[in-house]
């Protein structure tokens, strides 16, 4: 269900999503959908990326720790899978549409790897995208400066197959070798 907190859409599933374990059973199969804007200003949907394996991560560009760490891991993974990288697209979806406009997404993702695509959109579009991924986010209390705030967010990286089906997640801090092994096994 969708709950509104001070104008912010936050998706709460039926309990906390448990993403630690790789889960490939039929009952967990789902196909995320979204309509967002990429860091070059193009409107994109999940269908834009059909035929590509997706590594999807939610975050925000004002995030100084978790997001750069995960994006740099994804950059390492993309370098390590060599030629197979052409079939893999990492998507970084902003959970901070208020601050993350197209230009800031471009500036941010390009600092990590040329293959990473940054996606943002209107608040409702982000909320809806997160919901279909069963991802969660929540704006945290700002400090003395109202523009200084963090956003709590699902920290896992999702693997989505070329037909758009959820395959598994990789929990925060998963070694890059695990990503590489998984991708090499499937590609």
């Amino acid at each position: 269900m969708l709950a509104v907190y001070i104008g912010l859409f936050v998706w709460r599933g039926t309990g906390n999503p448990v993403f630690e374990a790789s889960s490939q059973s039929e009952s967990n199969a789902f196909s995320p959908s979204f309509m967002l804007v990429d860091h070059q200003g193009n409107t994109v949907t999940e269908k834009t990326y059909r035929g590509q394996w997706l590594l999807v991560f939610f975050g925000f560009t004002n995030c100084p720790d978790i997001c750069p760490t995960t994006l740099s891991d994804l950059a390492v993974v993309m370098d390590q899978i060599g030629g197979k990288a052409a079939s893999v697209t990492p998507l970084f979806i902003s959970v901070d549409p208020e601050r993350d406009r197209v230009e800031s997404m471009a500036e941010y993702v390009s600092a990590f790897h040329p293959t990473i695509v940054g996606l943002t959109g209107a608040e409702k579009q982000i909320a809806s995208a997160a919901e279909t991924f069963k991802a969660y986010y929540e704006k945290q209390q700002p400090d003395r400066d109202q523009s200084n705030y963090a956003v709590a967010h699902t920290s896992a990286v999702y693997l989505i197959s070329p037909d758009g089906t959820f395959v598994r997640t990789f929990g925060y801090g998963t070694a890059t070798e695990v990503f590489v092994t998984e991708l090499n096994k499937r590609l």
């Binding site: 906390n16 720790d65 978790i66 945290q140 967010h153 997640t169 929990g171 925060y172 801090g173």
Partner: peptide
């Protein structure tokens, strides 16, 4: 529970004989 959060940590205590590690994550 699969959710990343960040908050001010306040003072950092470093007890005798221990090491405080500030690292990614």
């Amino acid at each position: 529970d699969g959710l990343a959060r960040m908050s001010p940590a306040g003072n950092v205590e470093v007890s005798a004989g221990t090491t405080a590690i500030l690292e990614p994550g």
